[in-house]
Design a protein around this nucleic acid. Structure first.
Lengths: 343, 343
DNA sequence: AATAGTAATGCAAATGTTTTCATTTTATCA
DNA sequence: TGATAAAATGAAAACATTTGCATTACTATT
C-alpha cells in the first residue's frame, strides 16, 4: 500500500512549509540560479526544519540520471581489486556518483545476472572487470545503449571501452626479466584460467618468451594456485622440495609470489640466492616483504582513476563510443631475483 | 526533457505485446501466483522479445523497497575491510539485495554526507563501520527510522544495532599473551586514533593490562603507523634499531605486525628469538608469513555474514529495534612470539 | 441450466520529482 | 509614469510502476 501515513516528508511538504510551490523547491535544488536568493533561503530553512531528503528514485524516474554507476568485479576480496575499487570510487565520487557494487566470483552466468540487476536500478554506466564476458553480457550492454567500460585489461580490439594493461605483455615482461637474468630452470604458478582472461594472457605471454628462448618448462614445474597466498605457499612448498628444483619461479601475480617467498623461507631456501621469484602486479606489501619482490607493476590506482574519469565522461556525453586507454607496465626490479652468470 | 523517444521499453509496451494490461504484467513479476499460467507464458515471451528490464526506481517510488543496502566503510582498500565487505555482500545478495557502497576515509563529516546521499537513493537499510560516528549521523538515522547496524565493533550500550567484537578486549588479549609469555620490554605501534574507535579501544585495553602488570611503556617505544605495511615497517625499523630495543612488539593490527616482521628481517633480527611480534585481526596472509603471526583473531567473514543476515532481518521486519551480536575473539598462537623463562 | 463462488484481469489512482509553458512580479528605460 | 523586458514563480503533465477495487471469465454445485 502506498504508505499513506505521513512517514516521509516530500517536496510538497517542504514547499508548503516555505510557502512556495514544489516546482520552486525543485528548482532551488537543481538550478539554484533560477530562484531568488531570499526564496532560496526560506526553502533551505524549510528543508532543515523538516529533515527533507531528496528522493533519487523519483528523479531517476523522471528520466534524469540515477547518479549511480554499476561496478561488477569478480571479487572484492583481493588486495588488488580493493585497490582499484578504492581509487575508482574516489574518482567518481568527485562527480557526485555513488557506486552500486556487485561481485560474481568468476562465474560468467552470474555476471550476466548481476548486470541485469544493476540495469534494473537504472545505473548511469557500467564498469566490468576484464574483457572476458559472456556473449549475452555484451549483447545486453549494447542493446541497452548504456555507457560501459572494462577495467584492468587493454585490447586494441575490445568490444567495449577499456582502461587497462596488456596482460600478455605483463607475462612477457616477467618472463623476459627471468631470461635476462640468466634463468633457464623455471617453475610457473598461475591462477586457474577459467573465467580469468588476465591469468590466461599472462601465462601465454610468458610461455611464448620461454619458447622463443628455447626454455622448456617441465609439466612437474607448472602449477595452479587460486588467488591465495596460503594455497600458493603450499603449492610452492611442494614444488621447491623436489630435487632438482627450479632456480626461478614465475608467479602469475604478486599474491602468489608472496606465497612463494614464504614457502622458500619455510624450507630454509634463501631468496634470491637459492630461488629467484618474480610476480606481476606490484600490490601493497610487495615492496615491503623481505626480500622485496621484483615484479611487473600494474598501476592499479591509475587504472581506477582513469577508468572513473572515462566513465564519467561517457555518461556526461551520453556516449557509447568506444575509447581505449592503454596503461603502461613497468618492470620493478627489487631483491627477489638473482643474476646468474652466463655459463 | 522526459525522454519522449522510444529508447526504453516499459511495462506498458510489454503489456501491449502480450495483449494484457500493465497491471497483469506487474503482477506476473511480483505475485506470479495471481496470474494464469498461460498468460504468464505470454508475458515472459513478450519480456524476452522486447528486452524489457524492470525499473526499480519506479518501484521504489511507489513505496516499495529499493532493494539496496547502503554500506559505509572508512576505506575499501584494506585487506580486512575487503574481507567483510565480500562476505557481507554475498550474504545480502542471497536475499536479492544489491549494495551501494561509499567510503569516507576516516572523515566523520564526509561520512555524514555520504549517508545523506545513500538516503537519497532510498536504501532499505544502512550499515556503518564501527561505532564512532558524529552526533548528526546518529540523529539522521534515527530520524529517518531506517534499519541500521554497525559492524566490526560490539558495545553493550551501542546506540544502534551492532555485530562485532570488543576491541578493548582484543587489545587486552594481545597484551595478556605478551605478559603470559614473560615479556616486559614492550613496544607499541598503533594506527592514529582519530575517527577510529577500533584502534583507540585496542590501545586502551592493552595499556590497561600493561599497567595492571606493572609494565611501563616508555614514550620512545610508542609509535603510530597508519594502516600500511610500508609505514609500519619504516616505523619499526627505527624502533628496532635503537639499543636497547623492546623484546616484544604489540601491533594494533596484523598489517602493522607484518610490517614489523619485515622490519626485523631487514635488520637481521630473528623473530621470535630476538623480537616477538603480536598482531590483531588474523587477516589473509597472517598465517602464511614466515614466521607465521601470532594474533588475536577477529572473524571478519563471520561478522560480514551475521551482519548481512541481521540487516536483512531488520529490513524484512521493518524494524529499527536494537539487536546486538557479540562475535567472539580467539587467541591464535603461531610462531612469532617467544616464551621467556621468568627471571 | 442457473447460481454461487472463485480466479484472472483491467481501470485508475497514487507514488515524488522535473520541466515546459504560462503567468505574475520586478527592474529598466524613455 | 507607462511600456517593455527580464526574472521569478506556479500549474500541470510526464516519468514507470503497483495495488485496491471493480469487473469479467471460469468452475463447481445443485
Amino acid at each position: 500500500m502506498p504508505n499513506k501515513q505521513r512517514d516521509n516528508i516530500d517536496i510538497v511538504d517542504v514547499a508548503r512549509l516555505a510557502g512556495v510551490s514544489a516546482a520552486t523547491v525543485s528548482r532551488a535544488f537543481n538550478h539554484p540560479n533560477l530562484v531568488k536568493a531570499s526564496t532560496r533561503k526560506r526553502i533551505e530553512k524549510a528543508v532543515q526544519e523538516s529533515g527533507y531528503i531528496r528522493n533519487r528514485a523519483a528523479q531517476a524516474m523522471y528520466g534524469k540520471r540515477s547518479g549511480t554507476i554499476g561496478l561488477i568485479v569478480p571479487t572484492i576480496n583481493h588486495a588488488i581489486f580493493a585497490e582499484v575499487i578504492q581509487s575508482f570510487t574516489d574518482e567518481v565520487e568527485t562527480s557526485g556518483f555513488t557506486i552500486l557494487i556487485a561481485s560474481h566470483g568468476y562465474d560468467l552466468e552470474k555476471e550476466y545476472a548481476v548486470l541485469r540487476k544493476l540495469l534494473e536500478h537504472r545505473v548511469d554506466g557500467i564498469v566490468l572487470t576484464g574483457l572476458d564476458h559472456s556473449e549475452a553480457t555484451y549483447q545486453l550492454i549494447s542493446q541497452q545503449g548504456i555507457p560501459a567500460i572494462a577495467i584492468w585489461n587493454y585490447a586494441e580490439d575490445s568490444p567495449i571501452s577499456c582502461v587497462g594493461a596488456e596482460n600478455r605483455l605483463a607475462g612477457r615482461m616477467a618472463a623476459e626479466h627471468l631470461i635476462d637474468c640468466g634463468h633457464r630452470e623455471i617453475g610457473m604458478i598461475s591462477p586457474p584460467a577459467k573465467g580469468n582472461d588476465r591469468a590466461t594472457d599472462r601465462l601465454a605471454g610468458a610461455l611464448a618468451v620461454f619458447e622463443e628462448n628455447g626454455v622448456i618448462i617441465p609439466d612437474a614445474w607448472r602449477s595452479e594456485a587460486t588467488y591465495s597466498t596460503s594455497e600458493a605457499k603450499s603449492v610452492c612448498l611442494e614444488l621447491l622440495s623436489a630435487t632438482p628444483h627450479p632456480t626461478a619461479l614465475f608467479c602469475g601475480n604478486d599474491v602468489i609470489a608472496l606465497g612463494a617467498i614464504f614457502a622458500a623461507q619455510k624450507l630454509g631456501l634463501r631468496t634470491p640466492e637459492d630461488v629467484s621469484i618474480i610476480g606481476i602486479g606490484d600490490f601493497y606489501g610487495s615492496e615491503d616483504v623481505e626480500p622485496s619482490l621484483t615484479t611487473i607493476r600494474i598501476p592499479a590506482r591509475r587504472i581506477g582513476k582513469v577508468g572513473g574519469d572515462l566513465i564519467c565522461q561517457l555518461i556526461a556525453d551520453g556516449s557509447t563510443e568506444i575509447v581505449r586507454h592503454k596503461i603502461e607496465l613497468n618492470r620493478v626490479v627489487r631483491n627477489s631475483i638473482k643474476r646468474i652468470a652466463r655459463a
